[in-house]
């Protein structure tokens, strides 16, 4: 049944008509044309759809748009200013070649930023365990892990992290 949902996405107030069943990821991709958030599975496992809701990483394929009523949502598009310098976590992924095809990347980066906010200097093992909910088929994770460790340190030294 269609209803109007209102929320903040990347700092801007937005609203749109949704059905009860409309997933947050559908609202972002189809209503708001924020296609940086991807869908790679239908069982809530791959993590390509990770965004932040009220500062915490969630799988936007496993949340209804109506559940985000009134929430502050952050997507990959909001991490760095349009056309501007990369957020430290994004920059670390580039520097350490933490992406190949780029499809899992937005979810990986959003997940990594959530980790970095909780843990300023995660160990390799902590990063690997944190990324349990993000599947990458290209990189073998080696460079993603390096990137997340470096990105977390860069965020801790004050160069970013204010993404929500």
């Amino acid at each position: 049944m269609p209803s109007t949902v209102k929320m903040t996405v990347n700092g801007k107030s937005v609203s749109g008509q949704v059905e009860g069943r409309t997933l947050l990821v559908q609202f972002l991709r189809e209503t708001l044309s924020l296609t940086g958030t991807h869908v790679g599975c239908d069982t809530s496992q791959c993590g390509a759809c990770v965004v932040h809701v009220d500062g915490r990483s969630v799988k936007s394929c496993t949340m209804l748009a109506v559940q985000a009523e009134g929430a502050a949502v952050a997507t990959i598009e909001g991490l760095a200013p349009a056309g501007g310098d990369l957020h430290p976590m994004q920059a670390a992924f580039r520097e350490h070649h933490g992406l190949q095809c780029g499809f899992c990347t937005p979810g990986m980066v959003m997940s990594a930023v959530d980790l970095a906010k909780r843990n300023k200097s995660p160990s390799e093992q902590e990063v690997r365990e944190w990324l349990e909910g993000n599947i990458c088929r290209c990189t073998g994770y080696h460079n993603i892990v390096k990137a997340v460790m470096a990105g977390a340190r860069a965020m801790a030294t004050g160069k970013g992290g204010d993404d929500d």
Partner: peptide, 19 residues
Amino acid sequence: VRRREDYRFLTGKGTYTDD
């Protein structure tokens, strides 16, 4: 050389078929 394609992928500006 750091990859030239990364900026668009890292900022959610890649264009995949479903986009």
